[in-house]
Design a binder for these strands. Sequence first.
RNA 1: GCCGGAGUGGCGGAAUGGCAGACGCGAUGGACUCAAAAUCCAUUAUCCAUAACGGGUGUGAGGGUUCGACUCCCUCCUCCGGCACCA
Length: 859
Amino acid sequence: MQEIENMAGQAQEQMETYYPHGEIEVKWQKHWETRKTDKVVEDDTKPKYYVLEMFPYPSGPLHMGHVRVYSIGDALARFFRMKGCNVLHPMGYDAFGLPAENAAIKHDTMPDEWTQRCIGIMKGQQKRLGLSYDWDREVWTCREDYYRWNQFIFLEFHKRGLVERRTSAVNWCDKCQTVLANEQVVNGNCWRHEDTPVRIKQMPQWYLKITDYAEELLSSLDTLTDWPEGVKAQQRNWIGRSEGAMVNFKLVDRETGEAGEDFPIFTTRPDTLWGVTYMVMAPEHPKVMELVEGTEQEETVKQFVDRICLEDRHLRTAEDREKEGMFTGRYAINPLTGGKIPIYIANFVLMEYGTGCIMSVPAHDQRDFEFAKKYDIPIKVVIQPKDEELDADQMAAAFVEIGVMVNSGPFNGVPSDKGIPKVIEYLAEKGFGSGTVQYRLRDWLISRQRYWGTPIPFVWCETCGPQPVPSDHLPVVLPRNVKFGEGNPLATDAEWLKCVCPKCGKPARRETDTMDTFFDSSWYFLRYCDAQNDKLPFAKAAADYWMDVDQYIGGIEHAILHLLYARFFTKALRDCGLTSASEPFQRLLAQGMVTNKAVDPKDGKEKWLKMSKSLHNGVDPQEIIEKYGADTARMYILFASPPTKELPWNDDSIEGRYRFLNRIWRYFHMRKEAILQGMELVEKRFKMTYDEAAEGDRVLLRQTHATIQRITHDLAERQQFNTAISAIDELLNAVGKYKERDDDASAAAVYTAMRTILLTLAPFAPHLAEELWEMLGNTESIFQEAWPEYDEQWLTVETITIVAQHNGKVRARIEVPADADQETIQQLAVEHEAIHRSLEGRAPKKVIVVPGKLVNVVG
RNA sequence: GCCGGAGUGGCGGAAUGGCAGACGCGAUGGACUCAAAAUCCAUUAUCCAUAACGGGUGUGAGGGUUCGACUCCCUCCUCCGGCACCA
């Protein structure tokens, strides 16, 4: 019996060694929620700060990647609030999209119910993390009050000529049962199904003319000085600007043998125009069959085209793919030389770039060279290198460097790089062509043949064709009770399809395509500025107050997709007069992946790999929160590595953060009396000055003020949370080493240090900070308290340790007064026994003194 | 191939021209305890030497600039990410 009691006592004691994180966290979460402490309105008396984490797709429970991005955003939001900023920190859900539709079909429910349930789970966990959002601005993109503004914006874009419906080759995913934008094709496969090759289909689709903004999207990347280089480079790459000339070759007319129809091509090398020995068309070029009609080649060309067009698109255009082609039987005329040039078709020419036809200069382009060798096409040298004479028959590879133009009519002797603009000028003069710029960027295909998205606000009228839905008829509401089965349920919903043509009033049919969900996420940051507006997507004044987003945080996987689309939307909405912003995100932080050990299925070796379901290396945030609390989870994630780097998960290391918070808890309880006494003294204007302070107090207060300086810099400028947290560790260590005395100055010093620990801890571990702040008798939230300022006087020191080096190697440390002049330091160093020994009797040649740091004796 | 990023102890990482390894994890030894846990204290790059003081080497490799280089410049290697026949 006694033994049992004893054991129970021990258990009790053991429990008390850990602070009650669950209880504390739930208490403060309720407190913040009921008081709406994080609600904001525009306020011109404070500087604004807009911090935004990419809103999540509501897939259910959070994963560690979410916890990481929210911990970063929340630390910044809380820090800038304490710094006196008016902080906008919103949250919402990117709630339309295929996974919900597929899950709904699989689990025999409806996408809206499914989505709502997922949002419930996700939001509950976000609240449990203690994230300081203004929930009054929450958006769900699947709600009518959001997607009606998608439709509004779509129609605004339509008015400005930014919407186009056209038929062309599109990417189709069999698993998604819909088309995809170019950006959503990864290595020839669907971005959602990396094992499913996309198929190319000819279909009429809706496009947004992002290419109208290609130039601005490219050039204004240079203004984004606080974006990671890698993201900007990827966007530049994707936009793919290249300068060159459009040259009008002519087709040789079959009847007359004279120059007939135009045959334009794009080239970046107009300086090689005199060396063109053949032309090539893409096999799917619409003119191919027309050209070969009636020629000897008709049948073989047709077979070739059919074969190539059936090949996998990605494989066909891979760089290492064997180049294949054939003569069409037709010729073109080079406008500059009048020469007759054979036209080929080949697998490596792309229909979507330039005009789908190219000129080939085998002497000066490696691909053209290889093709010419294979099919025995003549090679003509028109650029000569400076130091050797090229002979077309002897060449083993194309000469692609800069040289001197030869066999080029009026341009002989001109250096080839200088020749490019000169030839372009000449082409323009003669009416043969003009200088032009081509982009790799394609227009954004935004229609999807699926249900769970924003209906495209158009109707089809037999008489009037496609008609935009008038804005006072918006929204076009997505029907809720639809039947899933074959294809898009909208297309089989007879009731929903019925409508009236807004132009002629006759019965019409609704457009059944919905919008790509990237449409939704391309402007949500603007909606947050004025989330409850029911007259407009957002009021311009509100957007002008809050925009740009000062700090955007999210995963690198959106380097092109979302980030390019959002930049495009901001510019297009600006041109529609809806906002003044030109760029959405001033500063971008691309956070690193959360990784854990897992066996790589590719080679069977154990590695640090991104947490994922398929690798079974995920750690559930819920379990971590239950075991250690949200504060520990957040601190660990910020402490373990810098935010842009990979975060290798370590169970022992998270224990370390938990110990740290427990240690703070214990210190406050152990030293409660001294701290309270110190607080009273400090509040009664008990003023400590450096000159009067005892040495021990000076050391502690120096550390305190240095900590404030460092953490402020780490958060405001460097966004280096790991070192900021380390600084709190160091300050706590200093308090641990501090020898307390039973006097006022000592109590004041301890209080000042402990108060600093609490205030600087608050952005990372807000619950614990609030709890201990309250324990000290404060009645207002710690987040109402101003961020501490450091006081220079405490950073001063009277003696400093100077490192004495001989030829750059540390030989000794010398103590000197902080204000010692250079001569004194120099003399002390030269006379120092260790330096003396190291000099071995030589006289010093030179002595360098770095004030406050070191002295280096050379010789 | 092109573009971007990174290479530092047993591990995560710190230091952006001035003492390399802050802080944390792990490890080792000690205190407390009947014992364990928790906590606290000490040590912890490496090699040589030692009773002790000390000394050599060291930030992917090689070169350079500098009194002094993890840090700047050049050449190269490895890893990660992106793009890749774009005429």
